[in-house]
Structures are given as structure tokens and as C-alpha cells.
């Protein structure tokens, strides 16, 4: 049995990208003090909307934009319910996931098995043929590069800009931010929409680029893993990138081990990405000093300005 390390690395990056996009979006949402458990629902909606658009228009760019739009539309429902109607964030997020799974299955009727247009890579094929580094560095679709840039951008904005400072202030103490005159609700709604767009883009990447098909429930928990990654990363952008690639590595490796038919039971391999996520969550949360330090203090709390 031999596993091609270069091919594995390429697969790892492709497998990770949807989860990475969803997780970096959710990180911004959580930094603003909102816990949106509807990532799975927004991702799958983005996946179906993106796929349908890709098949109907033949344009991957439109497909990605439509996927973002689909995720944003769903997150808007969440924003209205939790920010304006002050509903419970946990329950509303769950509702978003259940609704998104049903809606996506409904929208996708008749599309499984259709072929989306091929997404061309931004770099010339010659570069991707360079030994070892070629396929790893130059063999991806534009969205993959965008996802890494997005991590850098989120890190920069959160750490070094006024916008980031305000966002973090809202997430740490909405009363104080409100007293300083910041529009808590408006800032949070924008953060939620950003998270929705990221999750939707991740979903569209999954259906259009990675799987190139629409299958009901195809996200298979990727949205939940994205949520776990944010905790795993202690709300730090670069650690989200690391976590996503770690997860992608396990997912890509287990698929190759299944194909290689070594003695490990298939059920264990199928479950391994989820099991590893749980183990990592336990390791992170058992370290009291690290886990509690970075969590936004107002995470999940309902904000109601009394005056």
C-alpha cells in the first residue's frame, strides 16, 4: 500500500476549503457575540443554489455569487429573528439548519446527476506540472486561494483596524458598546450576513468544485465541524486555517485508506473525521485557561437596549 503524498495534500486543501470558508465566517459572527448554529443549513442552501445556478447558466462565477446569496438569504432570517425579534439563538440556529436541509432538498429536486461546468484554475497548467510544489501551490480553483486570503483579511481586520475593534467590543460587552454609541444590532446583523455569505460560498464550492454533483444532505455535518473548528481555534483566524487543514487531512486520508482496503473497519474510517473533531474539542475545552480566555464574553446572549 502506498499513498501519494502530493495527491493527498492537494486533496486535503480541496476537502478543507468549504469547511474553512464556513468556519472563518462563523468566527466573525461569534466575535460579534452571536452564536449561529445554522451553519449547516446555510452551507447546504449555498450548495444547492450554487449548483443549480452553475447548471442553468454555465457560469461558475455566477454560481459562487448565487451560493453566497443563498447563504446570506438564510442568515437574514436568523438575523431578523435573533436581533430584531430577540429569539433564542440556539433554537433559531437549529431551526435554520432544519429548514435549510428541507429547503435545499426541495430546490434540488431533479438536479442530482447533472453536470456543472468545469471550473478552470487561475494559474496556467504548466505551473501546476512542476514537480511536488506545482500541484500543491498552483493546482486549485480561485475560491481556494480566496479562502486563504479571507483568513488573512479577517485576521488583519480583527487585530489591526477600528472596524475590528468595534466588532470585538460588541462581542465582549454589548451594553458597553451600546453606551458608547455603537449600533449593536446593526453591527451584529452585518456580521451574521457575512457569516451567511461565507457558509454559502463554502457550500457552493462543495457542490460545484469538489463533488461536482448535487446530493441531498451532501454537507454531511461540515457545518457542525466548522462550528467546532471555531472553538478549537480559540476564535483565532490562523488557527481556524490550521484546524480546517487538519480536518481535511484526516478526511482525505480516510478516503484513501478505504480505497486501499487495509484492515481498518470502514465504519471507523467513515466516523474518523467526526471522532477526531470530538477528541480535539475535548482537549481544547479541558484546558481551562485557554478555552475561557478567548471566547467572546457576550456570546449567545440576547441584547435588548432598555433605553
Amino acid at each position: 500500500m502506498s499513498i501519494d503524498l502530493v495527491a493527498l495534500t492537494v486533496a486535503l486543501i480541496t476537502v478543507s476549503t468549504p469547511v474553512l470558508l464556513a468556519a472563518i465566517g462563523e468566527l466573525v459572527v461569534e466575535k460579534s457575540g452571536v452564536l449561529n448554529l445554522g451553519v449547516e443549513g446555510m452551507m447546504i442552501t449555498g450548495a444547492v443554489v450554487g449548483f443549480v445556478t452553475a447548471v442553468e447558466t454555465g457560469s461558475p462565477t455566477l454560481a459562487f455569487l448565487a451560493g453566497m446569496g443563498g447563504g446570506m438569504a438564510l442568515s437574514l432570517i436568523f438575523a431578523v429573528l435573533t436581533q430584531l425579534l430577540l429569539s433564542n439563538q440556539v433554537a433559531t440556529g437549529l431551526a435554520l439548519t432544519l429548514f435549510g436541509l428541507g429547503l435545499s432538498a426541495l430546490l434540488g429536486v431533479g438536479y442530482p446527476g447533472q453536470t456543472p461546468p468545469v471550473v478552470t484554475d487561475p494559474f496556467p497548467a504548466a505551473l501546476a506540472e512542476i514537480l511536488v510544489v506545482g500541484p500543491i501551490l498552483f493546482g486549485h480553483s480561485l475560491v481556494t486561494y480566496l479562502s486563504v486570503l479571507l483568513v488573512a483579511a479577517v485576521w488583519y481586520v480583527l487585530a489591526f483596524t477600528r472596524t475590528g475593534l468595534i466588532l470585538r467590543a460588541v462581542g465582549e460587552s454589548h451594553e458597553a458598546a451600546h453606551a458608547l454609541g455603537y449600533k449593536v444590532v446593526r453591527i451584529r446583523i452585518l456580521a451574521i450576513l457575512f457569516g451567511g455569505a461565507c457558509a454559502g460560498l463554502g457550500g457552493a464550492f462543495l457542490s460545484v468544485v469538489r463533488v461536482q454533483n448535487w446530493i441531498e444532505g451532501m454537507t454531511a455535518g461540515a457545518g457542525w465541524i466548522a462550528l467546532a473548528l471555531v472553538v478549537f481555534a480559540s476564535w483565532k483566524p490562523w488557527r481556524v486555517l490550521f484546524g480546517a487543514y487538519l480536518f481535511g487531512g484526516i478526511a482525505a486520508l480516510q478516503l484513501r485508506l478505504q480505497a486501499a482496503e487495509i484492515g481498518v473497519p470502514v465504519a471507523l474510517l467513515d466516523a474518523s473525521p467526526y471522532l477526531v473533531t470530538i477528541i480535539v474539542l475535548v482537549l481544547i475545552s479541558s484546558d481551562r485557561s485557554r478555552a475561557a480566555l478567548n471566547a467572546p464574553a457576550a456570546l449567545g446572549r440576547v441584547f435588548h437596549a432598555s433605553s
Partner: peptide, 22 residues
């Protein structure tokens, strides 16, 4: 009617319920 329609329908019910909680 496609089978998943009912799942979307059930999800909608939860949305309205949470919205009306206000």
C-alpha cells in the same frame, strides 16, 4: 409534491414560532 417540501414546511413552523415568541 416533492417529498422534501414537508421538511421545509416543518422548519418554517419553527421559525414562525420563534418569531412570535417576542
Amino acid at each position: 409534491v416533492p417529498a422534501p417540501a414537508i421538511q421545509a414546511f416543518q422548519g418554517m413552523l419553527l421559525f414562525f414560532l420563534l418569531a412570535l415568541d417576542v
